[in-house]
């Protein structure tokens, strides 16, 4: 898939993708190569370029069900699943309601999570979640992540409520259609294509979150990011490389559907841009 049409000048031969391949190889070498290298063994004393004791022991340990990293992976997956579904559904409903609100404050509120630091928010939210008995619980982490994920989704959905959808809604209502009919004939066809993207986006937000899970989770909710930070603290670079690659796997896998969906991710940002300006 190509998003930029080639420079076609009559009489000129099509250029090969050499520069793109060079850039791709550079990025692979900068990002994936060192992680794969370090994860392929233990120890890395100066000035060796490869681990002191090469082998796949860290990978087999990480993928064993007894391993904490494996448990953290399951927790991260569960959190990402719950947050993405609740965040997307909430975002859709919030976007419908705010489209009807005449006050600008709700819209501003939707943009707040885009710019505020999750770790600072987590520290400041801890008190109220602790009072509600939700600190140190998965439910507390989900609620805090939802406060971010729902507005993130709502902003994306907000751009769907155009004059056309308003006219369509009016038409369905004028013809005696109920709210269900509006959702079936107007809302669903409009949001159908964007829902998978929102699910992916909110799942990624949750999967990569460290600020909220570390503050609200209180050490009891252990995700891949929490393990990665712990490994970095103890200086276990080889294990940290394994955790980093595990952390990167879902975003990498999701990059493929995102590419198929014609790079919708930047389009969301376009949505935010439109919302603001």
């Amino acid at each position: 898939m190509s998003v930029v049409t080639e420079l076609h000048i009559p009489g000129k031969r099509q250029k090969p993708d050499t520069s793109g391949i060079v850039i791709l190889l550079t990025v692979v070498m900068l990002i994936l190569a060192p992680l794969l290298l370090l994860s392929g063994g233990t120890g890395w004393t100066w000035p060796a370029l490869v681990p002191d004791r090469p082998g796949g022991m860290l990978w087999s340990a990480a993928l064993s069900p007894d391993n904490e990293l494996f448990g953290a992976m399951l927790t991260s997956l569960l959190l990402a699943g719950v947050t993405s579904i609740t965040g997307t559904v909430s975002g859709l409903l919030i976007s419908r309601a705010t489209a009807a609100f005449s006050n600008p404050v709700p819209r501003m509120l939707l943009l707040f999570p885009w710019i505020v630091s999750p770790v600072v928010a987590g520290i400041s939210m801890y008190d109220q979640l602790a009072r509600a008995g939700l600190a140190g619980q998965m439910s507390g982490v989900v609620l805090a992540q939802l406060a971010f994920a729902a507005p993130l989704s709502a902003v994306v959905f907000q751009n769907l409520w155009s004059n056309r959808t308003r006219a369509m809604t009016r038409l369905v209502r004028d013809l005696g259609g109920s709210t269900t009919a509006v959702w079936r004939h107007v809302v669903w066809p409009a949001v159908r294509r964007i829902i998978p993207v929102c699910l992916l986006q909110t799942a990624l937000f949750s999967w990569l979150d460290y600020g909220l899970v570390s503050t609200i989770g209180g050490g009891r909710v252990e995700t891949v990011t929490v393990r990665l930070f712990a490994l970095l603290r103890e200086g276990g670079m080889n294990q940290a490389a394994v955790a980093a690659l595990i952390l990167m796997t879902p975003p990498l896998l999701l990059a493929v559907p995102l590419a198929i969906l014609r790079l919708q991710l930047p389009d969301h940002v376009a949505g935010v841009s439109r919302e603001i300006s």
Binding site: Y126, D127, Q128, A130, R131, G133, A135, G136, G219, R233
Partner: peptide, 28 residues
């Protein structure tokens, strides 16, 4: 046995937040 990685001052901060929120059942 499960573990939470916290340094001394982080621990004080965490427990202080719990007490401020009247949290009688903590995490640790």
């Amino acid at each position: 046995l499960k573990f939470s990685g916290l340094r001394g001052h982080q621990l004080v901060s965490r427990l202080m937040s719990d007490l401020e929120a009247n949290r009688v059942t903590g995490d640790l």
